[in-house]
Write a protein that binds this DNA or RNA. Structure first.
Lengths: 218, 218
DNA sequence: GTCTATATGAAGATAGAC
DNA sequence: GTCTATCTTCATATAGAC
């Protein structure tokens, strides 16, 4: 455990209580770390952003690493929570996949979703455990969600995956939904994907999967 | 231009001449920046790695930013060159796509390919122009290569893309080939994807596309 | 161009009063 | 817990001799 004597259970989302200034520090750290990454962020920026003094920062977190860890873990938790808001009803697989894809992209392409990806990847050498947490909280959870959906469709005979495992299909789906738009946004941060671009991409991806696996038992 | 009086045309790959120590500096900078990113890398590391003094570094590059820019541009050029080594013959689309996918993954999952991606993304806010260069040199070139291949297959009636544009199909293909294994390697740098994992993934992806678009005119 | 030595500033972290 | 003031280290960059 790398925190100090916080009231308990840190969470940026305010699930739980933390003395006022500690929360301010954590929120400030979130903003600064997500914007600048670990190395380029300074404790001065965080302190200033939080409106507290340096020693208040260090009263709550033993050092910069601990603060970073707290922020990233908290973001991963929030990310997973956002994913679990994705709901779908069985039947009408094509529509369901489209909705799921759009909702997933909403999270992935949100400012904090994008920044979390960037920072987790950038710091994977220095913070390997955080990178693992990120993978499990994001890509892995998403693939699991899609796999559950596909399992239902498979049982009802709506789809036929041939020799490809259901998990592999789910994994391919989430990767394909995410990758190109995310990469474009990461490399052109000033030109976020337009709503039309997103819609076209989702349509193309869903069409690809329906052409390949749709049409039921063969 | 951010370099100083180099003999001419910097290139890490040794295309061209640069006074001995300047090349040493650039090679050292490559190693250090790709390993640590921009902020965590220090000119001390580079100087030590190159076996020269601080002032030798600054005799050739006006500052740390210029050195970083030179390194990343050079890596992007090398990346594109590696991609253009991908050759394929028309006909036998499925085999050709598999070969292309494996060769592409070879480049993307190489230590320098992976590091370039990580650093370009991590520093896209501070060096937007470099991020653009990276996107064009990597993902964009790859998609173009695949599009050219698919155009041939489409003309010969080997495939039918329905309402989806050829460029979109090519883009989806390279993204799907890359994304999952790259992300796994980025988040678990100590467990590179195994040969079997790569083979399975490529098979699944190629199968997906052949099921969706193969079988010729419909 | 290249070196040694150094100026200058900034960053992480702490001391000690309240 | 919180502040102001400060310690210490280290990073970028330069000066000046050869």
């Amino acid at each position: 455990m790398q925190q100090r004597n916080l009231t308990e259970h840190v969470s940026l989302s305010g699930e739980t209580e933390l003395s006022g200034k500690a929360l301010k520090v954590l929120q400030a750290a979130r903003k600064v770390f997500l914007a600048h990454g670990f190395s380029a962020a300074t404790t001065d920026m965080i302190q200033r952003e939080a409106g507290v003094s340096k020693s208040t920062v260090y009263a709550h977190f033993i050092n910069k690493e601990a603060l970073f860890t707290a922020v990233i873990k908290s973001e991963c938790t929030a990310f997973t929570r956002a994913l679990h808001n994705i709901r779908f009803q069985p039947g009408r697989l094509k529509e369901t996949l489209s909705i799921l894809a759009r909702t997933y992209l909403d999270v992935v392409l949100s400012p904090s979703g994008l920044a979390l990806y960037r920072v987790a990847i950038a710091e994977s050498a220095r913070f390997p455990a955080l990178a693992h947490t990120f993978y499990r909280a994001g890509p892995q959870v998403s693939a699991r969600l899609v796999a559950d959906l596909l399992a239902g469709a498979s049982q009802s005979g709506e789809v036929n995956f041939g020799d490809t495992s259901l998990e592999a299909v789910a994994c391919m789906f989430v990767n394909l939904v995410r990758s190109e738009l995310q990469l474009q946004y990461l490399t052109y941060p000033d030109s976020p994907p337009s709503a039309e671009q997103i819609e076209t991409w989702v349509t193309n991806v869903v069409t690809l999967f329906m052409r390949a696996y749709g049409g039921g038992d063969k």
